[in-house]
């Protein structure tokens, strides 16, 4: 028999990297989803149709109107494709935040807190929503259709701008999801209003933000910086503006993650002091 107080083998000193751990989480999530293939397939299809109906709306409106505030049908499609892709990427990766209320309600956030890793990493890992590829497919199809037809003389700068838009927008939406999750620490009621900033922005972001008026443009520039990943860089891409600064504005939107994270930290601290 072993001596009860014998020293155990030395603990691993090397910490598993966050990226490796996240990849492992993703792997697990994908395997879980594959357990229900039929359901997964239906959800992908459903996700496709949700955004397809918005596309149909744009299509039918432009059958009647041909342009809005000087934007052509193809330019609007480019705009919607970008927003949709950003949103779907953020929703796929940050779905753990988007569905965080159930984690608080069922108490599984306690499990997160008894693990020696960063909470954000664990919450991100808790849910990787592969079904959002349905929506990405929709965005991709619109890109394929609109990119050659929107009358843009594509060059390196414009392609980079589009890439920056995707990066900045994904970060922005992830930040909004994080804020939503942080609210769950304070109340589980009435979180519906955050839909304005998530689903609302995705759906109404189909038109460049100045379509909604000057005040909305100001709101989207300084309050929740949608315009930084949508209106300004889009203007540069479609040639409405040649201000080279607009290429980099989407990257500025990444800074939105800072206040989001601070608010989240604040929420975690409050959870630990109230325990509810």
């Amino acid at each position: 028999m072993k001596n009860p107080f014998s020293e155990k083998p030395i603990r691993s000193t090397k910490k598993t990297s966050a990226l490796k751990l996240w990849m492992r989480y993703v792997g697990i999530n994908v395997r879980c989803a594959m357990q229900y293939k039929m359901s997964f397939f239906m959800m992908v299809l459903g996700q496709f149709f949700v955004s397809f109906s918005v596309f149909l709306g744009i299509y039918f409106m432009f059958q009647r109107f041909h342009s809005v505030k000087g934007y052509s049908y193809n330019e609007v499609l480019l705009c919607y494709a970008t927003i949709l892709m950003e949103f779907s990427l953020a929703e796929m990766t940050a779905r753990g935040f988007d569905s965080f209320s159930s984690m608080v309600r069922t108490g599984s956030f306690d499990q997160v807190l008894v693990r020696p890793r960063n909470e954000v990493l664990q919450v991100l890992g808790s849910k990787f929503e592969l079904t959002r590829i349905g929506r990405m497919l929709q965005a991709l199809l619109m890109f394929v259709y609109a990119i050659p037809r929107c009358g843009v003389d594509w060059n390196f700068a414009k392609a980079v701008t589009l890439l920056f838009m995707l990066i900045g927008g994904t970060a922005l939406f992830s930040g909004i999801f994080m804020i939503y999750a942080a609210f769950c620490f304070f109340t589980l009621e009435g979180l519906e209003f955050m839909n304005v900033f998530t689903d609302g922005a995705k759906e109404h972001g189909k038109y460049p933000i100045d379509v909604y008026g000057k005040k909305m443009l100001l709101f989207g520039t300084f309050f929740v910086p949608y315009a930084l990943v949508q209106y300004y860089p889009l203007c540069y891409v479609i040639g409405k503006s040649d201000n080279p600064l607009y290429i980099f504005l989407p990257l500025l939107a990444i800074l939105f993650l800072i206040p989001s994270y601070l608010f989240w930290r604040f929420g975690v601290r409050r959870y630990c002091s109230s325990g509810s």
Binding site: P9, S12, K15, T16, L21, I28, Q35, Y36, T106, R115
Partner: peptide, 28 residues
């Protein structure tokens, strides 16, 4: 009253994840 194991995958996979979360060395 709660579970820390992933519902839909074999138990050993949940263990493997914990191995990475706690950075447990392969031999221990």
């Amino acid at each position: 009253q709660r579970s820390q194991l992933w519902w839909d995958i074999p138990v050993i996979d949940s263990f493997e994840l914990l191995k990475d979360i706690y950075s447990i060395s392969p031999q221990s």
